[in-house]
Design a protein around this nucleic acid. Sequence first.
DNA 1: TTTAGGG
DNA 2: CCCTAAA
Length: 577
Amino acid sequence: MVSHKVLEFGDDGYKLPAQARAPRSVRKKRIYEKKIPGDDKMCAIDLLATVAGSLLLESESSVNAGGDKCVVVVQNTVKKEFPAEENPVKALPYLEDNLYQRSPGPCDNGQCGFSSVITNPNHLLVGDKVEKEVEGFSSLGGSDSCEVRNFSKNLNPGVNGDVKPDIVASIGSNSSTEVGACGNGDPHDSRDDVNLFSRNDDDENFSGYIRPRMTRPVPRIGDRRIRKILASRHWKGDAKPWYCSKRSYYLHHYQRSYPIKKRKYFDSISDSNSDDYRLQGKTRKGSRTISSMKSRNASFVSRDHHVRLRIKSFRVPELFIEIPETATVGSLKRMVMEAVTTILGDGLRVGLMVQGKKVRDDSKTLLQTGISEENNHLDSLGFCLEPNLETTPQPLSSSYLSEHACDDLTLCRGNALDSSHQPAAPSQADSFGKLGTTDHSRALIPVVSAAMLAPRPPNRKFKRTEQQLAAQRRIRRPFSVTEVEALVQAVEHLGTGRWRDVKVRAFEDADHRTYVDLKDKWKTLVHTARISPQQRRGEPVPQELLDRVLKAHAYWSQHLMHQLQTEPPSSQVEALI
DNA sequence: TTTAGGG
DNA sequence: CCCTAAA
């Protein structure tokens, strides 16, 4: 028999219902062993999404909050509040700063992730199509729902030219797999930020957002966990959302930025990408801080009532790959690629959570939803990426991708490269702007855009679904006579209603046998014992064992009462046997 | 998370 | 083995 190695990538801390999604291997650990602290945070495939929202209150000038990889700007622009001819002009400087005035950052290995730009339809903040977009919005009748306009902007220092779509996965000690964006985490571009950094992180739960990250290469495969398991699911598409827990809050006042970061569930993550999120268990305090700051600075309230959010990096969920030891490295790579591609290509949609509740009504305004600087709901805002299981094809033609996505790309690039629009810090623009733009960002945009915007090719989808099913299904593992013996013995003692105990008692070390498996096996054993030997299939089970099965089954059928209590007296068990 | 049952 | 309603 060929043994398999199950490579486990990633641990986002996003948890799915164990029984529903978690790979059996993981599930088993969680259920029976419970030995690994934090293991419960493992999620199966759950894709991605680490999202951090950051609130930015209005600021006249640029805010170089960019300390991290991804930037998402959401603006709840309302038409009447923002005359078409005015908004873009105002917004542009800000955005440009945020998106492009970044240091190349620690992406020295050239592996940058992507960031997202979310903006109102009438408020395309990037690119030379602003006016057009605004006009278009006007005709939309003031829809204020946000939509993803572009999805990816990362800085790739020093690299020019075409770069193929690339996904960077960082595999850390925490098994975090992340489509990371990096390379824009440099603080140099903001003096105010520097001040922030001088601040003690332990103080007030602040963490200098723009603190330079350690230049650790994103992909770290060295300490990934490799668990040898006989069976494990590959990964499974699921409707469960991958909630994001990372959040960052930024309050910007004039030229200052006051990054406030909070972190709720990712304390265990040690990846450098998350270094600046270390605010263990201080979420509440952080919120208070925000409030106090707001009260102290009335001007924090945006004149334009914009809500600015920052979403940092979307993660690729944990991947589980089962592959024979004899497989080639190449095949392993292909498997990983396939898994990642499947995740990204299977269609994603953005979910929004406000105060723990999902906001499904896309027509609501941010104000109505409570996403506003005027209230405290900001600290409970979260985005998540979830699989788009809709069967209905999205109204986007396939050409959308090839054209519009590229347009967006072009927009980003063009703007990014053009530093002349950046009044706030031209020098910085010169320093990093030209370097940092695009290549990598561009690399990821197509992928992500495709995932976000493109309709899934029906045929391909179907095919993949089948593939997934095949990949998900655990391999069949017929019970050996030895196993049957162990099962029968355990049931004789414990009864037929305590499969968990049976598991612990007799199959503790059999990772691939869940209590459900044992229950199922018992069921088939009983059935097998009742049918004629001619009708039985598979490896024959000794009649002696089948007899015990029937005997035990009969016994426990008569002792359901006791079953819940304790084992029957050994004498009875003896008699039973 | 487990159990209990149908698929 | 899978999927899930229930507890």
